[in-house]
Design a protein around this nucleic acid. Structure first.
Length: 400
RNA sequence: GCGUCGGUGGUAGAGUGGUCAAUUACAUCUGACUGUAAAUCAGACGCCUUCGGGCUACGUAGGUUCAAAUCCUACCCGGCGCA
């Protein structure tokens, strides 16, 4: 069971700093949740995750269901024990894969789209653009999947997602939802929202049957795309259900994350934590905290690290660029992460060019450190009333 | 010395008379990445350009042809075989 306390609210905004107590430790919020999809944070050992002072690790139901399978994870004592992580944990429900393996499969759509790419299609366009080779299809019952690993067919329902997440054993789990595409027509999003609401109730019901001792906390997921009426409807209806916290999911445009999230957070119960699903760019984190979010998870720091992009206080660097091969300075001057304490840009650039695995490890350590410390600093700035100045200064340097 | 095979863009290696500035891979350069289908993907990659095109290129020099990286001759260089 979850205990959430708000220490401080930032006047004139929806931002708050607080603490979530789980049976595996306290999470100081706002907090960035590290993504460990397959019960591993890619390229990092559990010891390295601890060294980063990460607070929470999130794994994914879809991936662990397919491999190694929920029974193995259950036998291992749950995914946290399986991967030797002792702190608080979450699992995502598999709902996001309805989007990434469905409407988005093989296409260039991102759930956070540039404004011009987020144009809603007509129903006809949407249907005809739906990729034939997609691996997921949504029905009222649930989502049918073809495994991306071997093509085998599977069905996820709200009930089965709860069952798998029960076996995976995280402290906090998510209701099964449909993440819609930013190009989906309004009518589709409205229909999808009604379905996600039904799924929320089914998730709750199955969760209550399974978890009689209240070991896991269940978060409901608010969808609604970029529409104020849908977002508000979702916040009211999902918010009225007996969840322990809330996830905010779905698609946004780059510019309206803060706006859309504040529509929701104005209506969600104030005394329960809010997790913004899958957001993790610096500017988005500021906006989302200001709009009242307490938790974030994002694959961006680790994926970008593996692909050679690192965060610095003065913006992103692509370490594969020629200019870094002979720069014998840290990735980011003044950074206290392991990578910056021990290695130079030239060395990291060399490792990427040589395709050495440690390139991914060292860059992941740096990027996670950067984002984790950023969110910690945001928290501090709420507590000592310097949020607005900190935001302004940070963004001015980062997006110079 | 004789014979034989071969010399193609940064590298390897296709092409063997027109559709070739030349397949492909690698390298190089650049970009993207937001609940991980991702150690991935995309673009550029002879020179110039008013983006229509122009120019120079397939060892070197000639030649045949309307047209040559592709055919012929000589030379240079390399592998292999025989002396």
């Amino acid at each position: 069971m979850l205990k959430f306390t708000i220490e401080k609210k930032l006047e004139g905004t929806l931002a708050r700093a607080g603490e979530i107590e789980t049976k595996n430790g306290v999470i100081k919020t706002p907090a960035f949740v590290v993504v460990g999809t397959k019960a591993t944070v890619k390229a990092l050992t559990a010891e390295q995750i601890r060294s980063l002072d990460a607070q929470v690790v999130l794994a994914n139901t879809y991936h662990l269901y397919l491999q190694p399978g929920p029974e193995i994870v259950e036998k291992a004592g749950g995914f946290p024990k399986f991967m030797d992580w002792h702190g608080p944990t979450m699992t995502d429900s598999g709902g996001f894969q309805a989007f990434s393996l469905g409407a988005a499969f093989g296409k260039a759509v991102s759930k956070v789209a540039a404004a011009d790419a987020a144009k809603e299609e007509t129903d006809e366009e949407y249907q005809s653009d739906m990729p034939d080779e997609r691996l997921a299809k949504v029905t009222d019952e649930g989502v049918t999947f073809k495994s991306h690993l071997d093509g085998s067919k599977h069905l996820f329902t709200p009930e089965s997602s709860m069952e798998v997440q029960w076996k995976l054993g995280a402290d906090m789990i998510f209701a099964f939802d449909e993440c819609t595409s930013p190009t989906a027509p309004y009518e589709y999003q409205k229909k999808s929202l009604a379905r996600t609401y039904e799924w929320a109730k089914r998730s709750l019901a199955r969760h209550e049957e399974l978890d009689t001792e209240k070991k896991q906390s269940l978060f409901g997921v608010v969808q609604g795309g970029r529409h104020q009426d849908l977002r508000e409807e979702a916040a009211r209806t999902i918010g009225a259900l007996d969840f322990d916290g809330f996830g905010i999911g779905g698609s946004f445009t780059k510019d309206d994350i803060g706006t859309a999230v504040s529509w929701v957070n104005k209506l969600l119960p104030e005394d329960k934590p809010r997790h913004l699903l899958g957001i993790g760019e610096p500017s988005d984190l500021f906006d989302a905290v200001e709009a009242g979010c307490d938790l974030f998870d994002c694959i961006a720091p680790t994926r970008m690290a593996r692909h050679g992009t690192v965060h610095t206080t003065t913006g992103r660097l692509n370490m594969k660029n020629a200019q870094y091969v002979d720069q014998f300075i840290p990735l980011d001057e003044g950074c206290t992460c392991y990578t910056c304490q021990h290695h130079t840009r030239a060395y990291i650039a060399h490792l990427f060019r040589a395709e050495e695995m440690t390139a991914a490890t060292l860059a992941s350590i740096h990027n996670l450190h950067f984002i984790l410390r950023l969110v910690e600093n945001i928290r501090e700035s709420i507590l000592n009333d310097t949020f607005h100045q900190y935001k302004k200064d940070f963004l001015a340097k980062y997006y110079k």
